[in-house]
């Protein structure tokens, strides 16, 4: 502590109440006397701290009262907004996805039809060099010429048509919208394959059966064939049906 000024005098200086002459003297001394400066500054901060300590009590009491009397709803709302912010955003995101899905679901429910699935079918291409027989060649030529009536006529005239000829007959029926006959012909090819333990045109039969079934509105049978194709990554037509097609056929099933 300095010996030239009392605490009262230093306080009086801070309040601007020290006589002018003594105040000037003090200011001069402050410039050189580090201890005096330090004491004056310590007094200043002590006075402020005493006052703020009292304010702190007032503030603490007000906060306690406020939080104790705060409406429960408001409290919960604020806390949930912050501490579970991620949850809120997750919920919002999930709700948005659900809403979009619902809208898509409604759209599909009203817009989906068998035609929307088979509107762009894959055309059947006759494999080259499969048969060198004259009759088969004639049937192939007729099929390539889209002369389906001739295909039907020639194959039906055969007493014992081959698997390829039977399949082409099924395709000719399909192309002429004789869907029931096409199905029956494809099923014959399938049972022949089973009998002979072969798989000739097996993938084609699956694919074109979907088209035939859907054209007749036989959704369940079409869905079965589509599922078979989708579940087999090695199936020739695996890539031709996507999840959307499966969803569409599911919705068609509901509509039926």
């Amino acid at each position: 502590m300095n010996e030239n000024y009392t605490l009262e005098e230093l306080e009086a200086y801070l309040y601007g109440e020290l006589p002018q002459e003594k105040a000037k003297l003090l200011e001069e001394e402050i410039k050189t006397d580090l201890a005096l400066r330090s004491e004056l500054e310590a007094l200043k901060i002590s006075k402020e701290a005493i006052e703020l300590a009292a304010w702190k009590k007032v503030i603490s009491q007000s906060q306690r009262d406020f939080l104790a009397n705060r409406p429960q709803g408001k409290q919960t709302q604020s806390i949930s907004q912050g501490s579970s912010g991620v949850l809120v955003w997750t919920f919002r995101f999930a709700a948005s996805v659900a809403l979009i899905s619902l809208a898509m679901g409604f759209y599909l429910l009203f817009s989906v039809s068998p035609e929307s699935i088979i509107s762009q079918p894959v055309a059947f291409s006759i494999p080259l060099m499969r048969s060198s027989e004259v009759t088969t060649s004639a049937i192939r030529s007729a099929y390539l010429d889209k002369d389906f009536a001739k295909v039907i006529e020639v194959v039906r005239s055969l007493a014992n048509p081959s698997l390829e000829e039977s399949f082409l007959l099924g395709m000719a029926y399909l192309e002429t919208n004789a869907h029931e006959k096409a199905i029956s012909q494809f099923m014959r090819v399938e049972s022949e394959n089973e009998k002979l333990q072969t798989k000739d045109f097996a993938d084609e039969v699956d694919y074109f059966l979907v088209r035939a079934y859907l054209s007749l509105g036989q959704i369940e049978e079409g869905a079965y064939r589509m599922k078979k194709i989708r579940n087999d990554p090695q199936h020739t037509y695996h890539q031709n049906f996507g999840m959307l097609d499966q969803l569409k056929i599911f919705i068609l099933g509901i509509k039926n």
Binding site: V58, I59, S62, Q63, F66, R70, S78, I79, Q81, G82
Partner: peptide
């Protein structure tokens, strides 16, 4: 101080939360 709490606490709390 009570008025400051009643008027602004919710807004300030939201900022932190």
């Amino acid at each position: 101080i009570s008025q400051l709490y009643s008027q602004h606490y919710g807004m300030l709390e939201h900022l932190i939360l």
